[in-house]
């Protein structure tokens, strides 16, 4: 299958009072049509900014974005209009992502209204259909978001994203604000929709157990950079980067017989403002030495498994 989306050396910097904040710094990846790319990292690693930059909700500082093989980095107004029908977003917070003054059907109809070319009866019909697709009973059509629970609200967010029939959806932590039992319902719905509509997802999250479950490939980000990139199973079976290892070990596992020791990390994420050239994880890495002060490159250590750490071989041979 062809790549639906390709991102080359994408950069997004923000100007702040104390310098340039490197939110996304030279990210490369591609997603095949119908697949899911999981993007994992802790708060401040640039994962949400990455998604928004791809959707042109933020202007990129550098790099290229290709969609269906076409360069869409700097689209014209018309191109952007077309592009936004193809690419959509589902937000994390089902409270703030819905306009409190719009009823469920108004919220779902809004994208259709903006796109134009539909009579209001057609829009109504389409909204009803979408509500059915995401499993919202039609009696909620005139309800307002505050009258509904988190799970239903998130379903509205999904229906709204589907309204224009997109090919690609950025899912920005779509289930992290939901309770576990509801989270499972929403995840299943998203998988069903992907199968039915051949959707391609970019699934941004901090929850590794969710990402493993839903993704084909996974990107681990740290301070704006990709530190490891691999197919989902490969990443979990053969974690290479010291940060990914620590991240994996830190997930509390709901199993009392398999408690793995947590790899302790010193300190906290360093500032992304005007970072030094070397490895950004250095300050917290137990293996860091002089060699890490040089710029790190993403290297393919195993087929399809990329890692950006110069000490990978050394670390992983001693560990085994």
């Amino acid at each position: 299958m062809a790549d639906l989306l390709e991102v080359v050396d994408l950069k997004k910097y923000f100007k702040t009072g104390s310098g340039m904040l490197h939110a996304v710094d030279g990210v490369n990846f591609s997603i095949e049509e119908g697949k899911t790319l999981g993007v994992v990292g802790e708060s401040g690693c640039g994962k949400s900014t990455l998604g928004r930059t791809i959707l042109h909700l933020l202007d990129s500082t550098g790099g290229r974005i290709f969609f269906e093989g076409k360069d869409v980095t700097n689209p014209s107004k018309r191109e952007l209009g077309r592009l936004r029908k193809e690419m959509q977003i589902i937000f994390q917070d089902p409270f703030s992502s819905l306009n409190p003054r719009m009823s469920v059907s108004e919220a779902i109809k809004y994208p259709l209204k903006v796109a134009g070319g539909m009579s209001s009866a057609e829009m109504q019909k389409q909204a009803e259909k979408l509500m059915d697709v995401v499993g919202l009973a039609s009696r909620y059509a005139n309800a307002y978001p505050h009258e509904l629970d988190g799970g239903r609200r998130q379903r509205i967010g999904i229906a709204r994203a589907l309204a224009l029939n997109p090919k690609f959806i950025v899912c920005d932590e779509p289930v992290s604000a939901l309770d576990v039992s509801i989270q499972a319902q929403v995840l299943n719905l998203m998988l069903d929709l992907q199968e039915e509509r051949k959707l391609t997802y970019m699934f941004v999250t901090h929850d590794l157990s969710v990402v493993k479950y839903i993704s084909d490939d996974i990107l681990v980000m740290y301070l704006g950079e990709v530190v490891e990139k691999a197919p989902s199973d490969e990443l979990f079976a053969n974690t290479l980067h010291p940060y990914s290892k620590a991240l994996l070990s830190a997930i509390p596992v709901p199993d009392i017989h398999n408690i793995t020791p947590v790899i302790p990390l010193r300190g906290e994420i360093t500032s992304p403002i005007d970072p030094k050239p070397g490895c950004r994880f250095m300050a917290r890495c137990p293996y860091a030495d002089e060699a890490c002060k040089k710029k790190q490159k993403l290297r393919e250590l195993y087929p399809g498994h990329f890692v950006s750490c110069c000490k990978c071989e050394a670390i992983n041979s001693t560990a085994n």
Partner: peptide, 26 residues
């Protein structure tokens, strides 16, 4: 900066439409 405003931008709504339907009513 609410996400619903961002969502409206993501569907290519015009600034006028966003101000009138999403921002001012709230």
């Amino acid at each position: 900066d609410k996400e619903y405003v961002e969502a409206a931008r993501a569907v290519n709504a015009s600034d006028f439409s966003i101000i009138m339907t999403q921002v001012v009513p709230n």
